[in-house]
Design a protein around this nucleic acid. Structure first.
Length: 502
RNA sequence: GUCCCCAUCGUCUAGCCUGGCCUAGGACAUUGCCCUUUCAAGGCAGUAACACGGGUUCAAAUCCCGUUGGGGACACCA
């Protein structure tokens, strides 16, 4: 239930103490508690973009508050956690440039902590042994569901007082059954839950491993997490976790629940909506900065601004401007942003990111033969035409190597026998220049077109095909500049050859 | 079924807290035009939204209630 009069914008006074944590840090008179946040993914697959966005908000807040950002791997699910997934998380975080200050911690390395705290709860009477079998529980849940009842645990072992269970038993937390738990959410405001909807959740499995709802609490408490910021899907876990903090005698952190990312059909984003792994976007030729910009803007805004540097993001971020509703992931806008970043990022950086793609396309020798400066020049040549690095590979291909592969249709259309003598004359003019000069060659070209009584396009297209092999390319004279005098003349001669033998 | 969250153009959003400046602004996509040696990029213009119903008020996108719709959670998953 939404608390009346509470919520996100309740009163100015109230807001001051919970919305603007930034003020707290900066205003004198408040105790300087350092912000400590964490990203706690489970290693059960690839790092997906929703996870990256959660990490991003945490990271932004930590950096802005000069706080600490912790990476914690929640791998207490033995059957689903893998080392490859842990590596995927680390690789993904590094690729988008989200550096952490502590960790990565693995929960499986902290087992004793969970077990000892669980025993503490048992001793204090906050927990009890449950000897119900998993299969029985499952059956009862199904039955309750078909009867239209709540599929909660019925609490049958709660008052049995089992002290030394034989065989496998699980430890359950004695959840409060009365009153209400109020969550004061950073993003959604005050939310109240009636405790009577709570059931006694298992905190220690019969295999001695802790469950999620218990290990998060122990870790968040022990790691002194001040703000637990996670996906919306955890909102209803919060009233289950708060009583555990309390039973353990730990202070309760602030919570913030980020709205979900949806697919085009408004269902929670999943594989069937297309690529969801962050690394898939790297492979599709997206720049990490574009990815970050897109993901942050999906659910957060700063007036009408669309493009942000990382520094701006850190400075301008605030919980107040985080959206409360879910957002549909829009690949078109991401693509536009990527194109924007390709156009405006330093060309040498784009070139650097492009190299692996060129190598992947079989151009490793060609790339090695060229200088970094030339590569950057190449990026400048095609940057407003390629929306991804993958597309850029295709645009850039004609500029490697001495000769060029002619597109058959283009050659047939533009390198006709009738063109041969005209191209020959143009070649002679260019050959007269001892060195390439964009301005001079362009003037000469235009003068030639005029003298011949041609239209610009009539000559430009055949030359374009001769130089690039295709009918679409950047400006002719920029192309020549990147090719250089020798290759320009060489390819022109080859083009004439082809035209005369057509 | 129960509980929780959410609701402005097709999409991301501004505006909502502190009602009037909103004949609702920006961005992506889309349409048309301009520029032009091709392809882009760029420039200009256009189409397009306050879910619905009740209140409160001189005045509601903004506050309250309800309805509808969407999403999430209810595991010895996280």
């Amino acid at each position: 239930m939404k608390v009346p009069g509470g919520g996100r914008f309740c009163t100015t006074l109230f807001r001051a103490c919970y919305r603007d944590t930034g003020l707290r840090m900066n205003s004198p008179g408040f105790s300087m508690t350092q912000v400590r946040v964490r990203f706690a993914p489970s290693p059960t697959g690839l790092l997906h973009i929703g996870g990256v966005r959660t990490a991003l908000f945490n990271w932004l807040f930590a950096r802005q508050q000069k706080g600490v950002f912790i990476l914690r791997i929640e791998d207490t699910d033995q059957s689903r956690s893998t080392d490859e997934s842990i590596q995927a998380i680390i690789d993904g975080m590094k690729w988008v440039g989200l550096d952490w200050d502590e960790g990565p911690f693995r929960q499986t390395e902290r087992m004793e902590l969970y077990r000892s705290h669980a025993m503490k709860l048992l001793e204090k009477g906050h927990a009890y042994w449950c000897v119900c079998k998993a299969a029985e529980l499952e059956a009862r849940r199904k039955e309750a569901e078909t009867k239209g009842l709540s599929p909660r645990y019925d609490g049958r072992c709660r008052n049995l007082g089992i002290a030394n269970p034989s065989g496998d038993a699980a430890l359950r937390f004695k959840a409060p059954q009365e009153g209400r738990t109020v969550v004061d959410d950073l993003i959604k405001g005050k939310i109240a839950f009636d405790n009577n909807v709570l059931d006694d959740l298992i905190i220690l499995r019969s295999n001695d491993y802790p469950t999620y709802n218990f290990s998060v609490v122990v870790d968040d408490a022990l790691m002194n997490i001040t703000h637990v910021v996670r996906g919306d899907d955890h909102l209803t876990n919060t009233p289950r976790q708060i009583p555990i903090f309390e039973a353990l005698g730990f202070p309760v952190p602030r919570f913030g629940h980020l709205p979900m990312i949806l697919g085009s059909d408004k269902a929670r984003l999943s594989k069937r909506h297309g690529a969801t792994s962050i690394m898939a976007y790297r492979d599709m030729g997206y720049l990490p900065d574009a990815m970050v910009n897109y993901l942050v803007r999906l659910g957060w805004s700063h007036g009408d601004q669309e493009l942000f540097t990382r520094q701006e993001l850190i400075e301008k971020f605030s919980w107040k401007n985080v959206q409360t509703s879910a957002a549909v992931f829009n690949p078109d806008k991401l693509l536009w942003l990527n194109a924007e970043y390709i156009k405006t990022s330093p060309p040498d950086r784009v070139a650097q990111a492009l190299v692996p793609f060129l190598e992947g396309a079989g151009l490793q020798d060609e790339v090695r033969a060229m200088s970094a400066d030339w590569l950057a020049q190449l990026v400048v040549l095609v940057k407003e035409r390629a929306k991804t690095l993958v597309e850029m590979v295709d645009w850039v291909r004609p500029y490697f190597g001495q000769s060029v592969t002619l597109d058959e249709e283009a050659a047939k259309k533009f390198l006709s026998p009738a063109m041969a003598p005209i191209l020959g004359k143009l070649l002679a003019r260019f050959e007269a220049f001892p060195a390439f000069s964009k301005q001079e060659w362009e003037d000469s070209f235009k003068k030639f077109v005029e003298e011949e009584g041609m239209k610009m396009g009539q000559l430009a297209q055949p030359v374009r095909v001769a130089l690039t092999g295709r009918t679409a390319s950047p400006g002719l004279f920029e192309v020549m500049e990147v090719l250089g005098r020798d290759r320009t003349l060489f390819r022109l001669r080859k083009g004439i050859e082809r035209a005369s033998h057509a």
